[in-house]
């Protein structure tokens, strides 16, 4: 199957899914922002005067962390079910099943646009510099590549091991708490060392450096970001291709 066909199909399915998500809803796209906005308001209200007290531009620091982590969590969690949810079609038509994972990524990215718009609104509200936001896509691209790699891996493994779906729900919640999203960590502390193994830490920190603090990220962080992206997508593609010939029999 050609890459062009896979991409065309991914776009067509993502457009259909996007329409399905809005279908019959009065508030439509406003719902996209509901979760990150409410999470942001809640955490900002609770932690601004405690965990966030010593963090410069805490609301922006918090919001960048929330929208990036939610993007990762939404895509990866949805991908654990994507193959089984489409079992009837997989058993009826030969098509590139990679497109199903791409569809989840694309439709979540559509929603992410509205979250970024909200971020711009918050930056403007707090009178922060907006020029750094121009660099956000520079982090978003490798972040999506990394997320795609994890998603391909999860999508394939869940077909064979249903438990992966439940394990991932639990693990992603642990990651939410373990990643410095609503708090900060001291360098060289134990949580910092653990976070060196947490790819999300690199992406979120770099995004904050660029979009919130207008500073150039540290080179080792950039190397970590590129390394984790490459490793993740390579592993994801290899695992998915290894397992996909038997998807139709396993679901």
């Amino acid at each position: 199957m050609s890459l062009k066909r896979t991409l065309e199909l991914s776009l067509a399915l993502a457009n259909a899914e996007f329409k399905l998500r809005n279908e019959g809803s009065y508030l439509g796209i406003l719902w996209y922002m509901a979760e990150p906005v409410l999470t942001f308001l809640l955490l900002a209200g609770v932690f601004s005067k405690s965990l966030g007290q010593d963090i410069q531009s805490y609301p922006l620091y918090l919001l960048v962390g929330i929208i990036m982590f939610k993007l990762f969590q939404k895509i990866t969690t949805d991908c654990t079910k994507i193959i089984r949810d489409n079992r009837f079609i997989i058993k009826s038509i030969k098509f590139p099943t990679e497109a199903l994972v791409n569809t989840v990524i694309l439709k979540t990215l559509y929603s992410h646009v509205f979250e970024v718009l909200f971020l711009i609104g918050v930056v403007l509200y707090y009178g922060g510099p907006t020029e750094g936001l121009v660099f956000y896509p520079i982090v978003l691209v490798p972040f999506v590549i990394f997320t795609a790699g994890v998603s391909f891996t999860l999508a394939a493994l869940t077909v064979y091991f249903t438990d992966v779906e439940y394990i991932w729900i639990f693990l992603s919640r642990l990651l939410w708490l373990g990643t410095p999203i609503f708090y900060t960590i001291e360098e060289h502390g134990s949580i910092f060392l653990l976070n060196l193994l947490n790819p999300n830490y690199y992406f979120i920190t770099i995004a904050r450096d660029l979009a919130v603090y207008n500073r150039i990220p540290e080179p080792w962080m950039i190397a970590g970001m590129i390394g984790y992206s490459a490793l993740s997508i390579a592993a994801g593609v290899i695992i998915f291709n290894r397992f996909k010939p038997k998807f139709s029999e396993q679901i």
Partner: peptide, 13 residues
């Protein structure tokens, strides 16, 4: 392939 007419039609589209 047209297997039991299942071609992935979506009810809400």
């Amino acid at each position: 392939s047209l297997i039991n007419l299942n071609i992935g039609l979506k009810d809400r589209l």
